[in-house]
Design a protein around this nucleic acid. Structure first.
Lengths: 200, 200, 200, 200
DNA sequence: CATGAATGAGGATTCATTCAT
DNA sequence: GATGAATGAATCCTCATTCAT
């Protein structure tokens, strides 16, 4: 095996992870069988257990990589931005772009929620989630919010809105991920009520 | 069988539906087996198939009842309210209260998304969802929104925020479902930016 | 219940027997379920057990009626015929015509062989078969056969040829059942070898 | 694992096929369960699915091997024979000897008829049958038959007679398979009618 | 005369996993 | 590195049958 081929070489581990990520994302963890991962990855079912101890371990690794990837993407997007609202725009845009560009790996992180798993997988998964969500927490903490706003509800609502995009957002539609992100954040930032509303 | 017991009599069908709803909600559709439904409902696995043609049919029935129940709850909450923003408060509050009061039946509707199922179940499920979400659509259509606001993003973000509560909301905490609903809607209604923000 | 309707009235028993005969013939005894008989007959599975003690009993009754019907048909066809070869023509023609005209009831008798059943069903079924085959035995006994011919092989070959028609014969083809019967018997009666054959 | 045992080593596949062939032949396809095949073959039910995709696939493989075996036997028997009638004697004798010597594998091919199966199994099975029956067709085509004889009826009657032997023939009786074959073919070849018959 | 409710046993098949090679 | 063979337990579901009504 000479160096010319190096680029094309994909290790067994990676082939399995890619196949599994794609299937977990599309069908869900439960509906995905080791056999289907084996089929998709071109490896025999027995071989998978040379690389991973269990099906759950595969999920955990994908979960971790997915969040790690997202973390990198979002942090990079935010790095050069100063204004907290602008940071939030960037972070959300990066999040949505990331989800739909690296869908294979990342859909898993959004759809498989820790509470359906038993320990110790659950804790592991929660840790990944929390770490990622802290990015948003920190940005939000810097935003000068009106004192009537519940900062926690703010954060959770925004995360909910972002997560829910997986249910309805289809790439190639009217709005780009970036547009969508801006629209979403603006919902929070600016008053939606039209002029006549005097309930403020 | 005397009349005193009449209230306690629960038909086989209902026992199965209750057991299944509870398990689907807690573990998810895939992790729930017919055997576990049988255990929980006190009926033998074979008997379940006297009442239902398949596991999927059970889900479908729960799905439909869940949305039907929610529809009733939300419509009732909105009925006597005139102002669209107030309608939205009421609808969201009813939604959250409903979810956490009738959790058994309703969690299923929030967590089992149609896209993981194959036809014809998928269509059936989508129909239920759409019907319910139209309630919110219609309310939102009546709200005098600032012309810069994308009404569609508004609706989807709100639904996302509401759905996501299942991930984080725990009854008995700092906020009641009603408080949470108010906070959420207010995020959209009023400007979150504190005074110094001149980007408006 | 007035007399005008009498023709249309079909008792539960008969509806079950008709449905079962049709299904047993088409799918075979094993592939036919009590539920499918119930569906086809318009009665509930439980009701079938009001009329019959078991699935096997239904088969037995169909088996008996089928052979009884065939016996009547063949005996009637033979009654006025004197010459034994002519009797054989008539009997075979009646057999084939009977099979394809009353296919529903009779296919069962040809396809469900006793040896796959356990006692006491097996004996019952054999008795029916034997009784019917005796008609052919007796006719053949009267035929003045060449002394080199094994009369037993003669009988069994003929029965085999007749039975096998179910595999290949399709009504509406080149040959009527009657033609086919004549051809078959002639194979035995006349020498097939063409002239030049001197091995006789 | 020493060399002495080498002859006795039988692969899992073969053990399953042998067990299944024996059971399919004795009880029929439907009455044979995967569990019973597992019992007979000494393998666990799950293991069977490592080698075969379905119960039907096992049948198909047995069907194909059975006909292939029969084809070899009959062709070998015919190879050195010139006269067409003698070929037919040999072919039928080989057929009957084959059936009763390799009963395990071959009974299945005679008793499980394609028409009870659904596509694509049915086509597969028909193909096997047709290929085998062509051997007989070709031999019969070479026989100089009296012009009054319907060649097609001739072929089908003979096949029927042969197939039917499974119903009545018991090895060790008065006639060997070879005797039986000769008797059967002679029924067709020579006139059965005794002298006084002037209907020729 | 017929049914609705229920069952225990068993149907084919798939599961994640193991382990000697 | 990777596999072929094998498994025990579980999967959804169907079976013929029962029985109180």
């Amino acid at each position: 095996m000479n160096t010319k081929n190096i680029v094309l070489e994909v290790s067994g581990r990676e082939r399995i992870l890619n196949a599994a990520a794609s299937l977990f994302g599309e069908l869900g963890y439960e509906k995905t069988s080791i056999r289907s991962i084996s089929r998709e990855s071109g490896m025999k079912p027995g071989s998978i257990y040379y690389f991973f101890q269990s099906k759950e371990e595969i999920l955990l690794e994908i979960y971790a990589s997915g969040f790690s990837l997202m973390t990198d993407i979002v942090l990079a997007a935010v790095r050069e931005v100063d204004d907290p609202w602008d940071q939030l725009y960037s972070a959300c845009a990066a999040h949505l772009e990331g989800i739909f560009e690296h869908r294979t790996f990342i859909e898993v992180t959004v759809r498989e929620l820790p509470d359906r798993y038993s320990e110790p997988a659950r804790s592991e998964m929660k840790k990944c989630r929390n770490l990622y969500e802290q990015i948003f927490s920190k940005i939000i903490d810097e935003i000068p919010l009106n004192h009537t706003v519940d900062r926690s509800t703010f954060r959770l609502s925004l995360l909910g809105s972002l997560a829910w995009t997986l249910v309805w957002y289809r790439p190639g539609g009217r709005l780009t991920p970036r547009d969508t992100a801006r629209n979403m954040v603006d919902l929070f930032r600016k008053p939606c009520s039209s002029f006549g509303d005097n309930s403020l």
